[in-house]
Design a binder for these strands. Structure first.
Length: 847
RNA sequence: GCCUGCGUGGUGGAAUGGUAGACACAGGGGACUUAAAAUCCCUAGGCAGGAAUGCCGUGCCGGUUCGAGUCCGGCCGCAGGUACCA
């Protein structure tokens, strides 16, 4: 008999799809549109299994929607700017542009054999001048609409290489190349005003019904709304020009428990004081060591410096408090100054203990309990506590009620005012790097910061650059930087910072609707195709990329590029898991780990017989060598096997473990289906009494697989297909029924294994392509069973079961249950305490 | 540190609060074959038992419920994010 030969089948059907141009998307108002998008890849050089899984999931949705009468847009592009290209240039010469475009070419070649339903005519890379030129136009429009501004912000500074480092380039507080201790240094940088939209971005999460709840929650917490009091402590002995310190607190109810005021080392007052206080200058310098990450700041030892300044308590002006500079207070949040209440905040408690400051309890669990001062008492804000030093509201109230009362009281006394504050900070977009979108502004001695003229866009990156010394080559380029001021025409300098690559990925989804437009977006195309109906990508993008995209869509609406209906660009979101693999490890003579590629390991041994240590399920990474090259899998088993495997076994939102035996099994199964189709195509068995049972199973399969695909239960859909194939291959039904079942099966597997499906479809004599055939519809009448089996529990444990007609009444079921042998025996002549009958589900007899 | 998830057989996993372990892998047994490969069939959570069956069992501790893998509280472990990796 013939064999299943994916290499031939897949090439053949891909050619057919190309000829018919079935994946080309064109606006067509006669059909409902459906826009499927997977997060576009970074062109690292090689496609990996995570990509295969991500794009296969999107492909299943795209193909399914095509078959249900939708006009589908399913594009692909490249998130092509970023650090790795510069690192490659530094490591091995060459140019980031050449490295990037070569990687794109290679990855496109790896992707095409997968048979994805992508409209390749819309492909672009974010490093194409046609793309980033439009991004520069967007930037200028945002600048004109007051959505962009400049301010100082801290970066990781490597004092030896004299360059700015990314957070991942700081290892244990030291520069990755120089090993020098990193410092936080301030630079003037460009910012998007995302924090102005914090309330809007937070509130609108509520309507994103088709987003995972966890992603919405993560964004909600990230934006972080709080209600508090902003007020001022008056300075008793402040330096010239300073008579108070503005603080923000979310716990004004603890104001009478204040024991110190703390300011950030970057607070203007701290900077002013350090000018003539060498000890404070040294302290601040110590605080500025290390990286800028929140994690590093939070985990750093808590340090304070007594400035000697004193402030008056606003509710009791005879009460004085000391002012400390403390490294755990961030200048970016609130006012950069706080008051400490040690009794009810563990960090303040530790600080007060260390510097011997008073600890005054404000509230207690109940009136009688003596305060224990071994740690801060921090109940939930919703718990009722007893205030012993409150000043507003009831003696017994929740923290939340006391905060509201305290704000009202203080406002009445003229002490500060209530304020809603967000954790979200403005989005710093300046990067001191070459391989990114140039920020289209010019610095002129006479005119200041001047936007480029739109007719001069794109401001292209120069090609003649080198990466032999650290730093941004644009900064030291002999001519690129020099230009004429767009305003006055005198000699001026270009901005040499480029944009954060998150900018590139914050609007690409809308550019796909009109990838060749000479404006950022063609409004007719955007009006037709937006929003993305289904967005698919990794959970690692839950906050930054998705939040920035939501901001950008709003900014693009404000600047007239997107309709109001597109401010939430992603109607539905799905976050998929990673592809993992075992790690094979041996040790060298010094005991250091040595990693081995999966293809070099057989039965836990290397070719020379050395046993390897197996470390289970880790994310595939080059350094651990636990990678499986999709190309090898496609060459060995075919694309359909790779697609089938990454969809089976694990639920899509969870990680999937790649195993060689699993891939082998997927391939065997597809071969079995192919052979079964050949058999059935040639069968001429007459119709018989088995036909009805087979067709009932077929309709159940249609129902279950459809439900699985629609709910992203691809693994569940595949389990049903396994079951249906087993039924079909054992069935004694006639040829006509079997052929109908097989035809339906071809349609059900078409989204997952499209080449195999086409081959079976044509083997069964169908004309046309399965990819354009309408999705089968289950006949409801064929889904209903006449009898159901009810398990009988006795005291919650399964002890027996009965088969009853599906429509039997509760009363009749109860009678049958009480007559059941196991129940009679357990009752031993007595009466049940309770009898619970859940129709169609279960019976529980409580004795 | 903080935010968000996840934790079920030897393995990947299934299970609208309702029969825990579907489906698959690896394993064991068998058929076909001179033999092997390929293919097909059977078996399979643990413990006890010849079997029927019984007991235990979804990271750990406790709670709600007629009934908890699922809901609630506390802990442990792992993963993602933590604003310049993408």
């Amino acid at each position: 008999m013939d064999r299943y030969t994916p290499a031939q089948i897949e090439a053949k059907w891909q050619a057919e799809w190309n000829t018919a141009d079935v994946f080309k998307a064109k606006a067509d108002t006669s059909k409902p549109k459906y826009y499927v998008l997977e997060m576009f890849p970074y062109p690292s050089g090689n496609l990996h299994m995570g990509h295969v899984r991500n794009y296969t999931m999107g492909d299943v949705i795209a193909r399914y929607k095509m078959s249900t009468g939708h006009n589908v847009l399913h594009p692909m592009g490249w998130d092509a700017f970023g650090m790795p290209a510069e690192n490659a240039a530094m490591a091995s010469g060459g140019h980031p542009k050449d490295w990037t475009y070569a990687n794109i070419a290679h990855m496109r070649d790896q992707m095409k054999p997968l048979g994805l339903s992508i409209d390749w005519s819309r492909e672009f890379a974010t490093c194409d001048p046609e793309y980033y030129g439009q991004q520069q136009a967007l930037f200028l429009d945002m600048l004109a609409s007051d959505l962009v501004y400049r301010k100082n912000a801290v970066v990781n500074w490597d004092p030896e290489d004299m360059t700015v480092l990314a957070n991942e380039q700081v290892i244990d507080g030291k520069g990755w190349r120089s090993g020098a201790e990193v410092e936080r240094r301030e630079l003037t940088q460009w910012f998007f005003k995302i924090s102005d939209m914090a309330g809007e971005l937070r509130g609108a999460l509520e309507n994103l019904d088709n987003w995972p709840a966890k992603v919405r929650l993560m964004q909600e917490n990230w934006i972080g709304q709080s209600r508090g009091l902003q007020f001022s402590f008056s300075l008793i002995n402040g330096p010239d020009g300073r008579d108070g310190i503005e603080v923000y607190t979310t716990r004004p109810d603890t104001l009478l428990g204040a024991s110190f005021v703390g300011i950030s080392p970057d607070h203007p007052l701290a900077k002013q004081l350090e000018e003539d206080n060498a000890d404070l200058a040294a302290f601040n310098a110590e605080c500025r060591k290390g990286s800028t990450t929140e994690e590093a700041l939070e985990k750093a030892d808590k340090m304070g410096f007594d400035t000697g300044l004193r402030v008056r308590h606003p509710l009791d002006t005879s009460w004085e408090l000391p002012v400390y500079v403390a490294n755990f207070i961030l200048m970016d949040y609130g006012t950069g100054a706080i008051f400490g209440c040690p009794a009810h905040d563990q960090r303040d408690f530790d600080f007060a203990t260390k510097y011997d400051l008073p600890i005054t309890p404000i509230y207690l669990p109940d009136a009688d309990s003596a305060p224990e001062l071994t740690e801060a008492y921090v109940p939930a804000k919703t718990d009722v506590v007893t205030y012993v030093k409150g000043f507003a509201g009831e003696a017994q109230q929740t923290g939340a009620a006391a905060v509201d009362a305290a704000i009202a009281f203080c406002e009445g006394e003229g002490v500060g005012q209530g304020k809603t504050q967000y954790r979200l900070r403005d989005w710093g977009l300046s990067r001191q790097r070459y391989w990114g979108c140039p920020i289209p502004v010019v610095h002129c001695d006479a005119c200041g910061v001047v936007p480029e003229r739109k007719e001069n866009l794109p401001i292209r990156l120069p090609d003649d650059v080198s990466f032999d010394i650290p730093g941004n080559p644009l900064d030291r380029h002999p001519t690129w930087r020099d230009c004429d001021c767009p305003s006055c025409g005198k000699p001026a300098q270009r901005e040499t910072d480029t944009m954060d690559t998150f900018v590139d990925s914050s609007w690409y989804y809308s550019r796909f609707t009109s990838p060749n437009a000479t404006t950022p977006i063609d409004s007719d195309e955007a009006a037709y195709w937006m929003n993305v109906d289904q967005y698919i990508g990794g959970i690692e993008h839950a906050i930054l990329h998705l939040l920035y995209s939501r901001f950008f869509a709003r900014a693009m609406h404000i600047t007239g590029h997107l309709p109001a209906s597109a401010v939430e660009p992603f109607d539905a979101l799905f976050t998929q898991g990673m592809v993992t693999h075992e790690i094979y490890q041996t040790r060298d003579t010094k005991g250091r780990p040595v990693y081995h590629l999966p293809e070099d390991v057989t039965d836990g041994k290397l070719a020379d017989g050395t046993e390897v240590e197996i470390i289970p399920s880790a994310k595939m990474s080059k350094s651990k060598r636990n990678v499986v090259d999709p190309q090898i899998i496609v060459d060995t088993y075919g694309a359909d096997t790779a697609r089938w495997f990454v969809l089976s076994d694990s639920p899509p939102e969870r990680d999937v473990e790649w195993t060689a035996s699993g891939a082998e099994a997927a391939h065997k199964f597809l071969g079995r289906v192919w052979r079964l189709a050949q058999d059935i195509a040639q069968s001429d068995a007459p119709a018989n009494d088995q036909d009805d049972a087979l067709l009932r199973d077929m309709h159940k399969a249609i129902h279950d697989v459809t439900g699985g695909v629609e709910s992203f239960g691809f693994n569940a859909a595949i389990a049903k297909i396994y079951g249906f194939v087993a039924t079909l291959s054992k069935s004694k039904a006639g040829a006509a029924a079997k052929q109908e079942a097989m035809r339906t099966l071809a349609q059900l597997i078409a989204p997952m294994t499209p080449h195999l499906a086409e081959d079976i479809w044509s083997a069964l004599g169908q004309t046309g392509l399965v990819v354009t055939a309408p999705w089968p519809v289950a006949d409801e009448k064929m889904l209903v069973d006449d009898t159901v089996t009810l398990p009988i529990q006795i005291n919650g444990k399964r002890r027996s079961e009965i088969a009853v007609p599906a429509d039997m009444s509760k009363d009749e079921i109860e009678k049958l249950v009480l007559a059941d042998n196991a129940v009679v025996k357990a009752l031993d002549g007595g009466q049940p305490k309770k009898l619970i009958v859940v129709p169609g589900r279960i019976v529980n007899v409580v004795i």
